[in-house]
Design a protein around this nucleic acid. Sequence first.
DNA 1: CGATTCTGTGGAAACGGTTCCACAAGAATC
DNA 2: GATTCTTGTGGAACCGTTTCCACAGAATCG
Lengths: 344, 344
Amino acid sequence: MGKATIRDVAKAAKVGIGTVSRVLNNSPKVSLATRMRVLGVIQNLDFHPNNTARLLSRKIRIHNIGVITPPFTNYYAFADRLRGVQRGLAQTPTDYELTLFSVSSLAHFDDQLALILQVRNVEGLLIIDMDLTEMQVDALRQAGIPFAGLNHFRGRSWTCIGTDNIEGGQLATEFLINLGHTRIAYVGDDFPPEYGWPTGEERCAGYKSTLRKHGIEPLDELIRLGPYDYQSAKTRTFALLDLPEPPTAIFAMSDFLALGCIAAIRQRGLRVPEDISVIGYDNLELSFHTGLTTVSQHLELSGELGIKYILSMHGGAESEPAAAPSLPPQSVIVRYTTQSISAA
Amino acid sequence: MGKATIRDVAKAAKVGIGTVSRVLNNSPKVSLATRMRVLGVIQNLDFHPNNTARLLSRKIRIHNIGVITPPFTNYYAFADRLRGVQRGLAQTPTDYELTLFSVSSLAHFDDQLALILQVRNVEGLLIIDMDLTEMQVDALRQAGIPFAGLNHFRGRSWTCIGTDNIEGGQLATEFLINLGHTRIAYVGDDFPPEYGWPTGEERCAGYKSTLRKHGIEPLDELIRLGPYDYQSAKTRTFALLDLPEPPTAIFAMSDFLALGCIAAIRQRGLRVPEDISVIGYDNLELSFHTGLTTVSQHLELSGELGIKYILSMHGGAESEPAAAPSLPPQSVIVRYTTQSISAA
DNA sequence: CGATTCTGTGGAAACGGTTCCACAAGAATC
DNA sequence: GATTCTTGTGGAACCGTTTCCACAGAATCG
C-alpha cells in the first residue's frame, strides 16, 4: 500500500502512463475530462509520485552537505557555527544544499551516522561538537564522504576545525591570575560528558595546569562539575558561594554556563565583577550583548572554514586531502564581568 | 565530461557493470587485481556515482522539508524558530530531513523558490520571516507542496504561524503609557523594508494607534526608521538623545534593535531604565539573558507548530488543509529595561 | 471531399544505478 | 577422474518517472 506507481494509476484510469505524467505536471495538453478522471484515481489510490525517479529521469543532480547538530542545550553556540556554514556556502557559487540532522543522544548519533552512510545522500558532512569513534571514522572514509568536525579535540586522526581547549583553559586562568585572583573556581560539565566530547575535560586540564604553574594547588571544593545546563550551573554556583571561603573568580567552561553563574551570584545580592569575576568561553554573539568576558573561539569562522574545506575536498582528488584550515589564535575578550582583585 | 556512468567505467576497464557496482559498494567478492583496475579507471574518468539512481534502484525514499531562511541579520530570531522546528521534528517519529535554503536578497528568494518548485525535492516548505506574492502562493499550491510562513502578516490567504504585529505594537505602547510615559520613541526598519515584509510597518501602526487612543499625537521626530541593523539602531538612538526634548521611553521593533538602542544610551552615560526605558519585541532567549523587557511572540513554538502543521498536511487530503495552528496570545515580558516614569 | 492541421493520447526508450541468476574455471572431495 | 564446491564475473531486468515519437480522430481548409 502507498506504493502505487504511475502505471497503477494509468491502468486504473484506463489511460496511458504518458497521460498520467502530463496530469502530474500540469501539462495543458490533457482534456478536462481525462484530467479529472486521473486526478480522481490519484486520490483513490493515495498515489504520491516518487521524486527520486523524477530527478533521475529529468537528469537533475542534487548535491547536498549534511550538518549534524547536537542536542538543544546551548543552541546559540550551534547557531553561531551554523551561521558561518551558511555564510561560507553563500560565498561559493555552487548549488549545494544543506541538510540538517539533529541528534538527541549518543546512540541516536550512531544511528544517524549509520543511516547516512547507508543512504549516502550526502556528499560531505560537518559534525558539530561531537566526537567520532575510530570505527565511525573508518566507515566515513570507506564511504568516501569528506567530513570535518567543527570543534577541536586533541590527537584525532581526522580534521577538526576549532581551537585548542587546553590552551584556552590556560588562557582564561592565566588572565584571572594576572588580575590578582588566586581562589579561582571552575564550573563545567561532567567527565565523561553525556555526548562523549572531551571539551570540558581539556579546558579543566588547562585550568589546573596553569594554577600549578603559578604555585596554586587546584582544590576539589572549587571544581564543580555537573550536567550541562543553565539551572545546574546556578545550583553549583550557589554551592560555591556557600563555601566558608568563596572564590573570588569563576572560570565557566562556556558562556552559556557563565551566564548561569552570574545569575546565581546576582541572585545572592553580590555584584559581578566587583565581588566575583566571571569569565566564560566561546564568545557567542550573545556574549557581546551581555558584556561577558570570555575566550574567543571563532565559532562562526569555524563553520565558514569547515564548509569551504568540504567543498574543496569534493572537487578534486580524494587521495590527497586539502590541508585542514586553521583558525586564528584564540584570545581573551575583555568585557565587564572581570576585574582586578585589588580594585575591589 | 564528468558525465561518466557505470557503463563507461565497465567498458574502459573491460569488466561487466556488475563488477563495477561491486567495487563501488566494497563487495568482498571482487579479486584484488580487478578492483585495482576498476578503481584506476574510476579515477581516470573522474567518475562519481549518481546517488539519485542509487536511491531509485535501492528503493529508498527520502522525505524532506525545506526551510527558507532570510539573510543573516538578527540570526538569533531565526535560530529560535529553527530550534522549534527541530524540536517538533524530533517529537514526531518520522524520517523527514530538513533542508536549509538561505536567501540573500528578495530576487534570490524568488529564484530559490522557482528552483524548489522546478526540482520539487521537498515535500513541505517552512518560510521564515518572508512574505510571498500571490503568484508565488499560486505556484506553491499548484505544485501541491504544503507550506506555511513562520511569522504573521495580516490578511494573507496562506497559513502564517505567528502573532499579530499590530496587536503587539499596541501592547508594547500601552505598557509604556501605563508606566506614565508620554514621550515615547519608535525605532524600526524602513517601509517598505528590503525584504518586503510588513512586520515593522504593522508594529509601528500599533504604536501610533495606541498613542492616539490616549490622546497623544505621534511625532515624526520620535519615529526613527532605517536599515535593520545594530549599528544603525545606535545611530538613530543618538539622534533621539540629541533632540531638544529627548524621549523618556523607546519602543524598538525587535530585541535586536533594542539592544542597539540600549548600547547607545549607555554610551552617552545615561542609564536604562532610570533615565530611559526600552522595550523590545521578540523575546529571544538572548533577551532573557540581557534582562530586556519585551513582547513575547513565541518564536520557538512557532517553529514547532509549523513543522507539525506541515507534517499533518502531507499525510492526508490536500483538499481540506488542516486548521492552521494558532499561538497563545502574546504578552509583555517585564524585565529590567523599563520602569515607571514617576520612579525616576 | 480529399488534404492538412490540431488536439489528445499511448507507450517505448531512457535516466544510472543495484541485484540476481547463470556460468566458467579452478580447488577440493571422494 | 568424475563430482561437487567455491570464487569471480557478465549482463538482463528492474526501480518509477519523463520525454519523444507515432498516431487516431476531429476540425479546418482549398
